[in-house]
């Protein structure tokens, strides 16, 4: 798979539609707790979490499976209502899913009966935009993810990596202020995954939307993010908030550089000590 270089035209279009975030996409999470079930079966997936994500930041939620990171993401998306606390995006309380918060799922989320073009144009179409506008938006994003040649194919005719690029394009076609990604590359093979990460960063550098990216892969989190939020299971809370001072643009070579290793080491040490603390707290 080749990584597509974003063309100048796409770049100017992205800017016109409020690229570089334009101050949109400020996520404020205040005292959020998410509980599932009732009575004795009740289970706390997310406990008393507060967060402030400034516009345009790339944040990775890192943690083992079942730690509540997807639950937190789904709360921002509006699929899950927090039991307590509040979530606001740009000052508006999140009540339900909406096009200003684009969502990219792990896999198999494209409409198999729609062509790639129609999948990407879905958001503009249901928003009531005309045919001409829909197809021009679709063309812009097809080009951006390098799939113009595949516009009239159906999702199942594409590889997993291509499908995820379509998923990203489809979410971005609504020009969201926030892009929420739930382990989007988790089902891809290692090589494709690296390409996709670089590809995503390129797209993000043009759009500058706020990104919340859920992953359990430390390398992925460090490579992508400005900021890594480490979550731990059982209490379902954020145990570490780490800044990633690597320069941008980031390229694949960086993933093996001494700087990267240094940050990774720090990150792992902090995860370890915070996890231990969390365990001790639990035992008490």
């Amino acid at each position: 798979m080749n990584v597509q270089v974003v063309s100048l035209e796409t770049r100017s279009k992205a800017k016109r539609f409020g690229g570089k975030s334009g101050g949109r996409g400020h996520i404020q999470i205040k005292g959020v707790t998410v509980r599932f079930g009732h009575g004795a079966d009740a289970h706390q997936a997310v406990r008393e979490t507060s967060l402030d994500i400034p516009p345009g930041q790339f944040v990775c939620l890192l943690g083992p499976s079942g730690c509540g990171k997807s639950t937190l993401l789904n709360s921002i998306a509006g699929y899950i209502m927090p039991s307590t606390g509040s979530i606001q995006v740009d000052g508006e309380a999140v009540k339900e899913p909406g096009p200003e918060r684009g969502m990219v799922f792990q896999q198999y989320s494209l409409f198999p009966w729609k062509t790639i073009r129609d999948n990407i144009a879905f958001g503009p179409k249901v928003a009531g935009r005309g045919y001409a506008e829909c197809s021009s938006i679709a063309n812009t994003f097809l080009e951006m993810v390098g799939l113009t040649r595949f516009a009239d194919k159906y999702p199942t005719e594409l590889s997993g990596g291509m499908q995820q690029r379509v998923g990203i394009a489809r979410a971005l076609a609504n020009y969201p202020s926030v892009l929420l990604m739930d382990e989007p590359f988790g089902a891809l093979d290692a090589q494709t995954r690296l390409m996709m990460q670089e590809n995503l960063l390129k797209i993000w550098s043009e759009f500058g939307t706020t990104v919340v990216f859920v992953t359990h892969d430390v390398d992925e989190a460090i490579f992508l993010a400005d900021r890594v939020l480490v979550m731990s299971a059982s209490p379902g809370s954020i145990i570490a908030d780490l800044a990633v001072p690597l320069p941008r643009p980031r390229v694949l070579d960086m993933a093996t550089s001494p700087d990267f290793m240094e940050i990774k080491k720090e990150c792992l040490e902090q995860i370890r000590s915070e996890s231990l603390k969390a365990f001790e707290e639990q035992d008490r």
């Binding site: 918060r101 489809r170 609504n174």
Partner: peptide, 26 residues
């Protein structure tokens, strides 16, 4: 698939649009 309904919701589709564009084709 529930994920398709979820995707449509996050893309801004109304209940009726989800019925027409997602549930019936599926």
């Amino acid at each position: 698939p529930e994920v398709l309904v979820r995707a449509a919701r996050s893309l801004g589709a109304t209940r009726l649009q989800i019925l027409w564009h997602v549930i019936l084709p599926a």
